[in-house]
Design a protein around this nucleic acid. Structure first.
Lengths: 343, 343
DNA sequence: CTGAAAGCGCTTACAG
DNA sequence: CTGAAAGCGCTTACAG
C-alpha cells in the first residue's frame, strides 16, 4: 500500500509552526529566524521530508512570468556515438554541479527536434541544449517568446537570440591541410558527411581553401554518415581503385578509425607508411596505442563548461543578450602522418 | 519581454467552452462529445496551446495516492563508457516510444546513488532505473513505501520488491573458460574488476569453477576498473613477467581492448598466435576489423526492452509483483582465440 | 455531455 | 520574523 508523501503541512504540524515557515526554511533567502529554520530542518530531516519540486514549479508561475522547473532539456542525436556520449556525460556533470536536472530526449533525425522540444516544453524546462542540430525558425520564435534560452552546441546560431558554442571548423580544416602538405602529400583525399552537412561544410571549406593556396585540389571526396562502418566503406571505395590517395583527412575520428581498420584489414596497408590519415574530434579511442591517430582535438571540457555557463547565466537572468563562442581545435600529432610524429 | 504561456483557460474562452471541457479534450478517456473535442483541439492548435505537464502532475496528486509526473529517473555511472552510453541510448529510445520522459542523473560512485535518487524523487518520478549500481536498504524501503517501482539493470535484486534485468554472468564465465580450454590453453589469466565487484564476481566464479572441473586454476588474476587504460595496465603487469599466460579472459570488452592494444604496441605480441583473448559485452568496437575480439555478447536490445516493459507495467499497475529476468550471453567467435574463428 | 468548484503542495505578497 | 491566504494550471468527482 503506497502512502502519500510527507508535505510541508505535515512538517509544520510536527514542528508547531505554519506551513509558510516550513517553506521559508527550505528557501535560501527566506526571511526566517535562524533558530526556527534549524528546528524545522531537523524535524523535516527526521520525517524524511523533501520539498516537492513539481509543486514549487507550479507556484513560481504565480509571481514569475515564466514558470520555472529546475530542469534543462537536452536534445541529442546519435547518442550511441562515442563523441556524443562523452558530450552528454560532461553536460550532465556540469549541469548537476550547478543544481540543474537534465531532461534528456534523443532523436534520430533533425526533423524530430521540433517535436522533442515541444514535449520538453510541456515540462516547463528552463532552458534547452540542442546537440548537433538546429530548431525550426518557428520554434526559435516560440522559445524567444516564452523566454526560454536556447544553446546550440556544435551548430551556427541560426537566429539572433540563440546562443551557441562550437569548434572553429574552418580553421580545423586548414590545419589538417597544412599538416598533410607539410608532410609532402599531393594526393590528398577528403572524407566527410554529405556536402551540405553542417559539421562537414566548414571543415571541408577550410581544407579545400588551404590546399588551393598550394595549387592543389582534393584528390577525391567520399561521403559517410559519421559511423565507423561508413568510414570503412569510404576506405573500400578509396583504396579499391588503381589510383590511391597518399593521404586522407577525415572530418570525424570515428570514420577515420573505420578507414584505419579497413586499410589494415582489407588492404594490408600500413599507416603512415602507405598513406597518412588525420581525423577530427580526438575521441578517446583515437589515442589507443595501436591507433595513435593524428587528429584535431575539440577541447570539449572547456566547450561544454562554457555552454553551460552561458545557458545558466541566461536562465538566471533572461535579460542577458545571446552569446556565441568558438573554440580553436588543437592539432594532436600522433603517428598517422608520415614524418610527423610526437617528439 | 517573455510572455506567459497559453493556458487551458485561454483556449476555453476562445472556444466558448468551460476550462474543464478543454482539459477533457486533451485527456484520452475524457467524457466529451467528439464534436466538441474536435472544435477545441482545432482552436488549441491555432493558439499553440500545449497542456502544462507540471500542472497535470500536481492535480493527479489530488485523487491518486501517488503524484504522477510522466518522468522516469535514470541513474547511471560512467556515462562516458561506450557500453553505458549505448545502454542509455536504448533506454532513452524505448522509454520515449512509450511516452515517458527521462530524467537523467549521472554519478561517479555507488555512494552517490542515494543522493541522486533523492533529487530525482523531488521531481516525483514515476519509476527509477539504476544502472550497474544498487540502492541502500533504506532507499529501497522509501521507494517501496512511496510505490515507486525500481529497476536494477545489471545488478542482483538486493531486496524483494525490486525488479532487475541482467546477464547470466556465471554462465558467461563458464563459456569463456570452456572456449579457452577447448582451444588447448593451460595458462589462463583472468582480468576483472575488484574481487568483490558485483559485475566481476559471478563471471569470475563461473570461470574459475569451469577451469576447476578440468583441474586448472587461473594462471593469474589482474584487477582493473573497466577503463581501457586499466586494461592496458593489466597487460603491462601480465606480460612483463617471465612467465606469460597463454590466454586471457577479461570481464569487459573495453579492458580487453586495452589488453589487445598493449599486447601489440607494448610487447609486439600477435593475437591469437601469442595468446588468446576473450572479452565480455560485445561493444561495437569489438567487431572492428583490426580487433575482431571474441567475446560474450549481452543482448542489450532485448534486455533493455524487457527492463522497460517490466518497469512501465509496474508504473501503470503498482500492484504487480516484482520481476527479475536474466538473459544468457552468446559466444561471439571472432579471431582472438587460437584455432577457433568464425566459419 | 457539460460546467462550477475543490484541491494537488508549494511560494510569496500582505498584514501584523 | 511570522501566519493566513491567494493562486499557479490542471483533473476530476459532483450535480445537472
Amino acid at each position: 500500500m503506497p502512502k502519500r508523501s510527507i508535505t510541508s503541512y505535515h512538517v509544520a504540524t510536527a514542528a508547531g509552526v505554519s506551513q509558510s515557515a516550513v517553506s521559508r526554511a527550505f528557501s535560501p533567502g527566506g526571511s526566517i529566524a535562524e533558530k526556527t529554520r534549524k528546528h524545522i530542518l531537523s524535524i523535516a530531516g527526521e520525517m524524511g521530508y523533501q520539498p516537492n519540486a513539481i509543486a514549487r514549479s507550479m507556484s513560481t508561475a504565480r509571481t514569475d512570468v515564466r514558470q520555472k522547473s529546475g530542469m534543462v532539456g537536452v536534445i541529442v542525436t546519435r547518442l550511441q556515438d562515442p563523441f556524443f556520449a562523452n558530450t552528454i556525460a560532461h553536460f550532465s556533470r556540469d549541469l548537476q554541479a550547478k543544481g540543474w536536472q537534465m531532461l534528456l530526449f534523443s532523436v534520430d533525425t533533425q526533423n524530430e527536434v521540433d517535436d522533442a522540444l515541444n514535449s520538453l516544453m510541456q515540462f516547463k524546462i528552463d532552458g534547452v541544449i540542442v546537440l548537433s542540430a538546429i530548431l525550426s525558425e518557428h520554434m526559435a520564435q516560440v522559445c524567444k517568446a516564452q523566454g526560454i534560452p536556447v544553446m546550440l552546441y556544435n551548430r551556427d546560431p541560426q537566429d539572433e537570440g540563440i546562443c551557441s558554442v562550437q569548434i572553429e571548423n574552418f580553421e580545423g580544416g586548414q590545419i589538417a591541410a597544412e599538416v598533410l602538405l607539410e608532410a609532402g602529400h599531393e594526393q590528398i583525399a577528403f572524407v566527410g558527411g554529405g556536402p551540405s552537412d553542417p559539421t562537414t561544410i566548414e571543415r571541408e571549406r577550410g581544407f579545400v581553401e588551404r590546399l588551393g593556396e598550394s595549387g592543389l585540389k582534393p584528390f577525391r571526396r567520399e561521403t559517410g554518415d559519421y559511423t565507423f562502418d561508413s568510414g570503412r566503406e569510404a576506405a573500400l571505395r578509396l583504396f579499391s581503385r588503381r589510383e590511391r590517395p597518399d593521404s586522407v583527412f577525415c572530418a570525424s575520428d570515428v570514420m577515420a578509425l573505420g578507414i584505419l581498420h579497413s586499410a589494415r584489414h582489407d588492404f594490408s596497408l600500413e599507416i603512415p607508411e602507405d598513406f597518412s590519415l588525420i581525423g577530427f574530434d580526438d575521441i578517446s579511442s583515437a589515442a589507443w596505442p595501436d591507433h595513435l591517430l593524428t587528429t584535431i582535438r575539440q577541447p570539449i571540457r572547456r566547450m561544454i563548461g562554457e555552454a553551460v555557463d552561458i545557458l545558466t547565466e541566461r536562465m538566471d537572468d533572461p535579460e542577458l543578450p545571446p552569446k556565441s563562442t568558438r573554440f580553436p581545435g588543437a592539432l594532436i600529432l600522433r603517428n598517422t602522418v608520415r614524418g610527423m610524429g610526437p617528439k
